[in-house]
């Protein structure tokens, strides 16, 4: 059951994306997400989709894996689509149900929003599929280093994230073990009403909580035994270096950002009149 959580799981493969500097990958992903929302018109959004698609293919992760990440957010997409379609009232009316009028503008906004959400999810899973959690936090720590100037303890923050990420699989495994053990004693978590299901969680949550505290204190002891004392003067085992492809992709991303802002600006008028010239 818990094995179905694919979002945020590393998928081992040998690809250009896997080998990229994790800092660059984070910037690219943030860039893609920004692009999704900067693109206001169909052609620019298509361009973003195309770009995302190319990058996804570069990861050599099966497309099936990306589609899988979309499954849990289908309800989110449906709800936002309905709300958008109902509340946006620009453009011409298409049809009317009771007192609600659905307009072309509403439908367009709904479609745009759905595409944006899909792209957002896929580009963030591209990051997590191709980057190990440790690389990820390492890169975040370095990208956040400038925040030291506002007295933010970037290292501790990154360490907490690393530990949290590191323990997600452990906790999932532990949960499964405890669940199996309680199921072996006849615990029934899968049927019954809401209240009885909540009550059925107690035999799982209490042992899990206790073992988490035990693990935390053991880990703290083990870290202290190895003289861990925070970020000052710590050196790194793995140094990150920007290589050709890292720089090339960063430049490409910057160019795309510019192109989409420009196309928003100049193409919108042309395209709208081409597509909806009659109705607008």
């Amino acid at each position: 059951m818990l094995n179905d959580i694919t979002f945020g799981q590393y998928y081992p493969a040998n690809s250009l994306m896997h080998r990229l500097d994790p800092r660059v990958k984070i910037l690219l992903t943030v860039g893609l997400i920004v692009l999704c929302f900067v693109a206001r018109i169909a052609p620019s959004l298509l361009l973003v989709a195309l770009l995302t698609g190319i990058l996804l293919l570069c990861t050599r992760v099966p497309v099936k894996m990306y589609l899988k990440t979309l499954k849990p957010i289908i309800p989110v997409i449906l709800i936002t689509s309905v709300i958008n379609a109902v509340y946006v009232s620009s453009g011409t009316p298409l049809f009317q149900v009771w007192r609600i009028t659905v307009t072309t503008g509403g439908v367009l906004t709904a479609v745009y929003m759905s595409v944006r959400i899909c792209l957002l999810i896929m580009s963030s899973s591209m990051l997590t599929y191709t980057t190990t959690p440790t690389d990820l936090t390492d890169a975040i720590e370095r990208l956040l280093t400038p925040l030291k100037w506002i007295r933010l303890d970037v290292h501790s923050l990154a360490m907490m994230m690393t530990i949290a990420l590191r323990f997600i699989p452990t906790l999932i495994e532990e949960t499964e073990k405890i669940m199996s053990a309680q199921k072996a004693r006849g615990a029934d978590v899968e049927s019954g009403g809401l209240l009885s299901r909540i009550r059925a969680l107690i035999p799982i949550l209490i042992p899990l909580l206790i073992s988490s505290f035990r693990r935390a204190s053991e880990l703290a002891d083990a870290m202290e035994c190895r003289c861990y004392h925070g970020g000052d003067d710590r050196t790194r085992m793995k140094q990150l270096h920007l290589r050709f492809w890292d720089v090339a992709l960063l430049i490409l991303a910057a160019v795309c950002l510019g192109a989409i802002i420009l196309s928003n600006h100049y193409l919108s008028g042309v395209l709208y009149s081409l597509l909806f010239g009659g109705v607008l």
Partner: peptide, 16 residues
């Protein structure tokens, strides 16, 4: 599951 009782490794971690 009642007829085939299973005691996991370190079963003390399932006490609640």
């Amino acid at each position: 599951r009642f007829q085939v009782g299973l005691v996991f490794q370190y079963p003390e971690y399932q006490l609640f």
